[in-house]
Design a protein around this nucleic acid. Structure first.
Lengths: 130, 130
DNA sequence: CCTAAAGTCTGTAGTCGCTACAGGGTCAAG
DNA sequence: CTTGACCCTGTAGCGACTACAGACTTTAGG
């Protein structure tokens, strides 16, 4: 499989695949005589593992850990669990933060009745510490 | 006021203040004879406007627009409202995305009973497209 | 008055996760 | 045999900082 086909099969852009290889997240595939990358099904699986992890918001570093754990034999999944829980806690924090921002924006926008700048509550909210 | 005091007063790091100046978000302050930056209260207000905007998740570009609008005279605040609403829509999208991720992580973690890797539902969820 | 520490300066490079080139080589179809 | 699609490497850019190095200035204490 050439990189373009892998890209189509995974939904991951060609440059991104090469980037993952460059940073050592994906191992370098074999090459054709003329230097084209040649991928196996396992390579594609690994890439899909990565893209799926990204969709769940894991960092590439976390994914690298998970990949290593996934490819070791017969080890306890406590480490996997720990990574996932830490990540979940992080996601929860971000949700709360964003919701706070959301509420504050809604409140501020509602206060804005249009018209002159002097009455604009959005600019007011930004000017006054809150 | 020197930059360190501005930093303390605003909670914004010194390097960040200089960065904002470098990218043209904050105008360059006057200098002492020996080249130290010298800030006025208005400069500090502007910086607080920026940090407050950042806390609400506005991009620096959005904040630059808001700053311009805030400092023009007697203009309608429709533009301000438009920027804030667009930003709110963006925040809402991100909340939904993160909540989806959160739910999926919770589901996946709950499925993990510890023990051997072969039964680990987290790795399974990452391996299988979902 | 001298010294040491703390503060400030510029400029550059690093972070993360890509993305977008430039400038070349290779392959498949007509 | 040419055209166009594909692939290669290497580098630079994004946003929003952060972290130095290496030099200078100010301030406080002895």
């Amino acid at each position: 499989m050439k990189i373009g086909q892998v890209s189509a099969a995974s939904g991951c852009q060609i440059e991104t695949i090469r980037y993952y290889e460059r940073i050592g997240l994906l191992r370098a595939p074999s090459r054709t005589e003329t230097g084209y990358r040649h991928y196996t099904c396992e390579d594609v699986d690994r890439l899909r593992f990565v893209t799926r992890g990204r969709a769940l918001g894991f960092s590439l570093e976390e994914i690298a850990s998970l990949l290593r754990l996934a490819e070791e034999d017969g080890l306890a999944c406590d480490d996997v669990d720990r990574i996932a829980r830490a990540h979940l806690a992080d996601v929860e924090r971000r949700v709360v933060d964003l919701q706070r921002i959301q509420a504050e924006l809604e409140r501020t926008i509602t206060g804005c009745k249009g018209g002159e700048r002097a009455q604009c509550s959005i600019l007011g909210a930004l000017r006054d510490a809150g």
